[in-house]
Simulated assay, not measured.
Amino acid sequence: MSRKRVYRSKKKLGQIPGSVVYTGERTTNKLFLEAFDYTSKNCTEKELDTVEDSFEFKHTDSVTWININGLNHVTEIEKLGKHYDLHPLVLEDIVNIAQRPKIDEYEDYIFVVLKMLYYDKSQHIVSEQVSFVLGKNYVLSFQESEGDVFDAVRNRIRQAKGRVRNLQADYLLYTLIDAIVDHYFGVIEVLGDKIEDFETEIFSGHIEDDASRKIQELKREILRVRRAIFPLREVLNRIDKNETDLIQQKTITYYRDIYDHLIQVTENIDIYREMIWSLMDMYMTTISNKMNEVMKVLTIMASIFIPLTFIAGVYGMNFQHMPELQSKYGYYIVWAVMIVIFVGLIYYFKRKKWL
């Protein structure tokens, strides 16, 4: 278990169930609230100064989306939860960023947790928890920090594009989840490019010294993506089978479309996961082949110099009665024999295609 996970779990040890304790590490984020209140004809967009400013939207006839950034502001989130009658366990899960994707159904609202994935400037995967509360005519979204994948949804609401302004809050929740799932494709594409580039690098033989570290990083990335995405299938299955009035039957079709996209993403994850395991095998095979080539060269060199060393050793002995030592041309004859042996072995190895 990593130090980060141990640290987060320690924050929850000994706490009473329902305790609202922020488990993230970023504690300096400012609280940011925005609200979109719209009907098919009108749209109001506001940046709210306080949580209390959002209370007026609860009982309107229009559809309202209230987005909250800054889970470290626990007191403000508790105020919002009290006004919207959110269960203490829901508030606990909102600020506990180690939650796995899930869905909980309550009498007046549905609570959904999922992960928003993106690459940062250092090309490392960032997994940010996003929580949604779907009510009769509103959607509350909770994010850990500023920056998300909902700009396209905001523009559709502002410009009355698509169906979002003509349908209810359940369709708004669909568009937000769909934006997150669509962004998974971008993450998977980048991850796939990394794997394919590294595969090409291994095949070309230009392997860097930190290749094994890169493979381990790819493994961690794919496991992190898999951990964030796979449980979402269960969430969408439960939405498809739900019996609540908060999600209309005609909207279920759209959620099924998200499920189809998610299946495509998970299939790609499985493929890339197998490719990463194959990369390690390829890397080890390549290293082994290089070692075999080195050993082959050393063996051939040893095979060439063994007979030469033998001859030099024999005539390097200090016996007095060695007939060849008295020969006038003995030195030249030994050199000739050694050269012939050397050339003959080279020719033999070439013919056998060992060189």
Rank of each mutant, 00 (worst) to 15 (best):
L140D: 11
S122F: 06
V133F: 14
Y106A: 07
E107L: 08
F132P: 01
G135W: 14
E144D: 09
Q129K: 08
Y119S: 05
V133M: 11
E105H: 07
Q129I: 00
I110V: 10
Q129A: 02
K121P: 00
Q143G: 07
S131T: 07
F142D: 11
L114V: 05
I125A: 01
Y119E: 10
G147A: 04
F132Y: 07
L140C: 09
A152M: 10
D151M: 07
E105A: 09
P101G: 08
V149F: 02
V149Y: 01
L117P: 07
D120C: 03
Q99V: 05
E146S: 09
Q123S: 13
M116T: 05
E105D: 02
R100N: 06
E144R: 08
Y138L: 01
F150E: 01
G135Y: 13
L117T: 00
K136R: 15
H124F: 04
Q123K: 13
V130D: 08
A152K: 15
I103H: 02
I97P: 00
Y109T: 02
V149I: 02
V112P: 10
M116H: 03
E128A: 14
D104C: 04
A98T: 15
E105K: 07
E144N: 05
L140T: 12
K102H: 11
V130H: 03
V149G: 00
L117K: 05
M116A: 03
S131L: 11
Q129T: 03
S127E: 13
V149C: 13
